[in-house]
Design a protein around this nucleic acid. Sequence first.
DNA 1: GTACCCCTTATAGTTAACTCTAAGTCAAGC
DNA 2: GCTTGACTTAGAGTTAACTATAAGGGGTAC
Lengths: 113, 113
Amino acid sequence: MRKYSISEVAKELNLTPYTLRYYDKEGLMPFVERTSSGTRWFAETDIEALKIVECLKATGMPIKEIKTFIDWCHEGDSTLQQRYDMFLERRATVEAKMEELRKTMETIEYKCS
Amino acid sequence: MRKYSISEVAKELNLTPYTLRYYDKEGLMPFVERTSSGTRWFAETDIEALKIVECLKATGMPIKEIKTFIDWCHEGDSTLQQRYDMFLERRATVEAKMEELRKTMETIEYKCS
DNA sequence: GTACCCCTTATAGTTAACTCTAAGTCAAGC
DNA sequence: GCTTGACTTAGAGTTAACTATAAGGGGTAC
């Protein structure tokens, strides 16, 4: 059960320590342990959680909304429904975005000829 | 051959006059005529051109790159190849983006279960 | 003749998501 | 004991794409 420093995690996720501290400040990683002197000490599970954060970010979800999601995760099973609803909403958003892109490319393709 | 004022065009394209003047300043509409007193006087074809600008924007193309495209349009047929190349590149970008969204949603869908 | 819409320049504010610096502290490794 | 890398707070800077205000002026319509 190795633990990781902030720069190791940054490297693995292709981020910078600055960004990770920023995420922490924004409440996206309230789970990370600290050593007695205050150094962040990431577990594998923390890195997995951050990968989900990156996934949500990749769908265009703003950081504040991701924070809500993370908060719900910490409130336990009572928020399962809310999280599922958020997922459905996000899926709809992404599908709408993809549909718009598809249509836009069609238009451009048409204009190009 | 009606002509349109800036706020009529803004309304039709769901933008604001501020935004249109901003686009003008950024060089996205060097084609728009002016009255003797300096008022912008949009033709139908100008609105069509702006619709293409909106399309390109919808694919995530930054304004500076759109300006390049507009400039090429004004240079005439000698830039046809460049414009086509830009289109191909844009299509590739959009397709990559869509592919990433698809994969991301798959991952999230998996994590959700 | 006044209201409304257009124009300009210049400048400042907004939002999101970083990105970085400064100034000072702490702890581990060689 | 010095270097390295972690930490903190506070704050400034960056980028994109607007969005808005101020201050001044011009033209058209009722």
